[in-house]
Structure formats: C-alpha cells, structure tokens
Design a protein around this nucleic acid. Structure first.
Lengths: 172, 172
DNA sequence: TTGCATGCAAACGGTTTGCAAAACC
DNA sequence: GGTTTTGCAAACCGTTTGCATGCAA
C-alpha cells in the first residue's frame, strides 16, 4: 500500500462531525484575535501582521492545511508574505504544541490548530475525506499495552484507512 | 510535538519480542533465496542480482531500514548498485505490499518486509527503541469505529510513543 | 534604538525520472 | 532483437537557512 499515490488530500471535501455511542463529536472552540495574540506572546514572540494572518488562515481554512495552502490563503489578501515566514512560524507553533502536524506518506505536512479534545483520523482512500473521532476504549487499551511493555505513554498516532460509504456506493 | 526533532531512529537498539496476556509475540518467518525469487516473480519482474541483494538487505538488516541504509548495506559487498535501483524496487515492493513503508515526521522512510502477522509499534521517545505489538481488542474497536462512520476499513497505522522503562529509570 | 522578524533566493535532503548503455531471454 | 533493468545525473519538491532589510517594542 503506497499512500503517496492513492490519497489525494487536495480533494478533502468536508470534515463531518460524528455523534454516536462510544464516540463524541469533536468540538472546536471559537478563536479570536485576542486568543491568537495570547498564543504568540506565550511563546515569547512578537505579534506581527504575518503571524496573525497565519493563525487566521489556520483557523478559517479547512481543518488540515498545508504550508502552501496557508501561504496562498494569506497571499490572496496580503501579497507580502513569504514561504519562509509561514514555514518558520508553523514549525514554532508545532514545537509549542499550539499546532499539530500530520504527515501521511511522503505528502506535504498538514497542520491544524491543536484541538482541546484529542482525536484520531479516519481517511477515505478513494476520495480523501477525513473523519475525526475519539474512542476512549481504544485509548485505554493503548495505555494498557504501553504499561505491559513498561512504557510511560506520552502520545500516539492512530490513522484508520478505508472506503467511505459514498465511494462504496459509487463503485458497487 | 515535533517528532522530527525527538525521535532518533538511527539509535534503535533492539526489537524486543513481547509475550503477555492479550498480546502475542511477533513471529518473523525465515526467508530464503527461494522465497525472494517467488516474490519477485509474483510481481512479474525479472530476478536480478540487485533485486535479490535488496531483499537480502531488508531481511538481514535491522527490521526498519531506510533506502540509504539498504544502499549502503549492499554497497559494502557489491559496489555496483545505484540509488535509483534501490528506490525503484522498494517502491514496487511497497506497492505490492511485500514491504511496508513507515514514515515518521519528515524523516526518511523506513522499510520492512511485511510481516505475516500484522503489528503496531511502540516507540521510546528517549532512546528510539521500537517494540512491536499486536492487540486484537484494539483492532476490533477500530473496525467498529470505521463501521459507525460507514467506512469499510482497509488498513490502519497505530504508533504509540512513550518513555521505556530503561529511560524512566535513567532519569528518575 | 535594538534586537527580533521578514522576504528573498539559494541550499538542502530525500526521492523520482529521463536516458543511454547493459543485461536478459 | 526486442524488451527489461540498470546506473548515472539531473530534476523535483517540500522544507530550511543565510543574510540584508524592516519593523515591533
């Protein structure tokens, strides 16, 4: 299985929220200008137009954006911004855990403002749709496995891949 | 969390096998020259010295090797092999699921001969030690989550990160 | 005013590709 | 002899970096 060829992340259409037994919907808290400034200051950095723009882009855009997309989103309004600034700030944000980096295959990294509630991803290998979910039972089991190995668990990455109902219908 | 900075895969010391309730040790079947030829023929490719060498390198080397390492492993004995050949064949092997590609952060991809028994990874963020495990309960729950979203699950990636017992002791 | 932040362009590193020569059947 | 396969080198692409200029504090 070589995801680089199969998954076309540029096609992500929606980010459906799921509500059902065992899982709970992912809630994204509203973020405003003030919050962004706080985030920047918390990292001992200066509040600049560019940094605010990057955070806005992360917030307004699709949940999972590439550095390139952030650059273009900003460039539409404010043409004076460079790659380097975007990459540099995204990296800093990631290092401070304000942003979460997701990499799949050899594709460009995707970023999202770190959600308060942790969640994992379920990706359709046909159309690239990403669903977010959280499952407490799985997390508990992960903890148990780690403990059995004598590990203190710090984090995890769980990515499920499959064919979504739409794509199943389209084929069958 | 930015794994690119934290995990140093070159330091992987061992691949401990775990035996305990709920999990079972990962068994790696012995692979010989004959098996390799079968694999190559199964892909409708010709058996060449280079391809055999690449498979040998994957088999003899550490469980998770980079393309670069494969290239160097072979280069030690048979200097006449190029990057391109290694990359091309690794890609083909991956596409045919004979080899599994693991990417972490922005680091070079690592490859392993696809084990008969599926397993996931538990990685120490201090020393880079990788433990392999399999947990049927987790897999069942994954299936359930996918079904709740209407997905037909095809595969998954589960990577746990933590601090191993040795590193905990070393610090505390 | 002083040092951090920026934009530019060049460098980087892993991976892929085009192509002519070599190996295979 | 026609088709693979290979090695080389150049291209590629996402990302990082060096440096002179610009701007927040």
């Amino acid at each position: 299985m070589y995801w680089g060829d199969i998954v076309e992340l540029t096609k992500i259409p929606v980010l459906p929220k799921f509500r059902g037994s065992g899982e709970k919907g992912v809630n994204r808290e509203p973020l405003d200008e003030k919050t962004f400034k706080q985030m920047i200051r918390a990292m001992n950095l200066k509040v600049t137009e560019q940094r605010m723009a990057i955070l806005q882009a992360l917030h307004c855009g699709r949940a999972h954006v590439t550095a390139q997309e952030v650059y273009e989103l900003i460039g539409a309004k404010d043409p004076d911004i460079g790659f380097a600034t975007v990459y540099r700030f995204l990296r800093t944000l990631t290092e401070h855990s304000f942003v979460t980096e997701v990499r799949m295959g050899g594709l460009p990294a995707r970023y999202e403002l770190t959600p308060k509630a942790h969640h994992d991803h379920l990706t359709c290998i046909q159309c690239g749709k990403i669903c977010e979910f959280e499952n407490v039972e799985i997390e508990k089991l992960q903890e148990r496995v780690a403990n059995q190995f004598g590990f203190a668990l710090t984090s995890h990455v769980l990515e499920l891949y499959g064919v979504c109902s739409d794509c199943q219908r389209r084929k069958g």
